[in-house]
Computed example of a mutant assay.
Amino acid sequence: MFALVVRFDCRDLAAAAEFDELTTEVVQHIGDKEPGTLVYATHAVEDEPLARVFYEVYRDRDAFQAHETAEHVVRFHARKEPLLAGTRVEFLSPGASART
Rank of each mutant, 00 (worst) to 15 (best):
T42I: 15
T100C: 08
R75C: 04
E48H: 15
D60C: 02
V5S: 07
S93E: 15
R7V: 03
R88K: 05
V6N: 10
H29V: 13
Y58N: 01
G95M: 14
Q28N: 07
T69I: 01
F54D: 11
V53Y: 07
G36S: 02
P82A: 06
R59A: 06
I30L: 13
F64C: 07
F76P: 02
A16T: 11
V5Y: 01
I30M: 08
H43D: 07
E68I: 02
H43K: 10
C10E: 07
R7Q: 06
S93F: 11
E56S: 01
D60L: 03
V57P: 05
R75A: 05
Y55R: 09
C10W: 03
H43S: 13
A44K: 13
D9R: 09
E68A: 09
R75Q: 10
V73S: 01
A63V: 05
E71W: 01
C10K: 06
T100V: 10
T23M: 15
L92S: 03
Y40F: 15
V74L: 08
D12E: 03
V74P: 10
L38E: 13
T23S: 14
L50D: 05
A17I: 03
Y40S: 04
H77T: 12
K80F: 05
R52E: 07
Y55S: 08
L22T: 02
R88W: 12
F8D: 12
D9N: 07
L50C: 01
R7A: 03
A98F: 15
T37L: 02
E48Y: 09
V73K: 06
I30H: 01
V89I: 11
E90H: 13
V26G: 06
F8P: 12
A85V: 07
